[in-house]
Design a protein around this nucleic acid. Structure first.
Lengths: 191, 191
DNA sequence: TAACTTTTAATACCTGGTGCCAATAAGAGT
DNA sequence: ACTCTTATTGGCACCAGGTATTAAAAGTTA
């Protein structure tokens, strides 16, 4: 039963590797690289469940298209659940596909930051409020599917500077903490 | 000379728009949407220099594949102009409508941060790189239409922690400065 | 040698096109 | 009304890069 020739498995590995390195290869090009007939290449792809070139390109295009679509970071990132102007606020942000590194499923930092930053700005009750500086820590990674609850507290608000602390949780765990200094346009009388 | 019928130009606009919104449309699907024959669609594409579906998909796939190891380009906010792994990087990000507060035309902080953060992560040459913490200052607001040039420098890289400084300029003016601490997965300590 | 797997070949068919030529249709100019 | 020009449509041959199927050939053991 155990056949001496296992160039097949080897070839399968090579083929997977080749296509991993360069998914733009046609079957015909693969015949040159692997020195087998085109039918063999196609049987191999069949066994390995590797789709044809055009399907591979389409899938790549779709993935990159989705991730480009999702970038618009608007208004407040996440849903505002609770807001007491000049005091505190809470927002919810669910980590989905477009927010994570595909390899690791871990959210890119700027999305977690964006939730916190936009909440910090939203909680300041003024026409114009801008982030002046921030000191932030990503305590633990947020992962695909997790629901991030950001809580913002206005710690002080004198003159044009307001200090806002934001802490983001997933369940009981802290994932992010940041101290923001927000510039506001004028005195708080101008609401 | 000036002909009254310009359904052609209108159709060209519609066609461009349709394909802009959904580049995955075949000519046949376009005939249904535009109510003209498939030949007309193809003449239109010819005039507008729009390639066929498969070519479009291929181009999208290629763009998304023009990745530099750990991070596909479109996962970076802005366009990478220059990248020396583990050393430095430069990216360009133009502030457009969707990035600003409509009242003031000033960019929301998290967009400027996102450019800097994603560049800081991209410059780290590793499979997995995550922002651990950051200390950032928004030196002056970035405004609608301004081109932000972010420059990242790897200041130190010992073990799993890398310090990356990012400074963002508009022209000669500094708009943002941040010190990032990036966690890397492991392995590569070669600088 | 027989039984088996693996490889190659041949053929029909598919999608989403290109390229080319000819036939209409729809104006505009005079 | 009759051209002249542009626009639209149709038909046909052809292409790449495949799928699907059937069959033959080659290699591999027991």
């Amino acid at each position: 039963m155990r056949m001496e020739r296992l160039p097949k498995r080897q070839r399968h590995q090579q083929l997977s590797k080749l296509l991993d390195e360069n998914p733009f290869l046609t079957d015909r090009e693969l015949t040159r690289l692997l020195k087998v007939s085109i039918q063999t290449i196609r049987l191999d792809r069949l066994e390995l469940a590797i789709p044809e070139l055009r399907e591979r390109l389409k899938q790549m295009a779709e993935r990159s298209y989705d991730s480009i679509r999702s970038l618009p970071l608007d208004e407040v990132i996440g849903d505002v659940l609770d807001l007491h102007l000049d005091k505190s606020g809470i927002s919810l942000f669910e980590i989905s596909e477009e927010h994570v590194f595909s390899r690791s499923g871990i959210a890119r930092g700027h999305h977690v930051f964006a939730q916190a930053n936009s909440l910090a700005v939203a909680v300041i009750n003024d026409e114009i409020a801008l982030t002046a500086s921030a000191d932030i820590r990503f305590v633990r990674p947020a992962r695909l599917g997790e629901k991030c609850i950001a809580k913002a507290y206005v710690r002080s608000s004198r003159g044009q500077k307001a200090k806002v602390e934001v802490i983001t949780y997933v369940g009981e765990e802290m994932v992010f903490q940041g101290d923001f200094i927000i510039y506001r346009s004028a005195s708080e009388t101008k609401t």
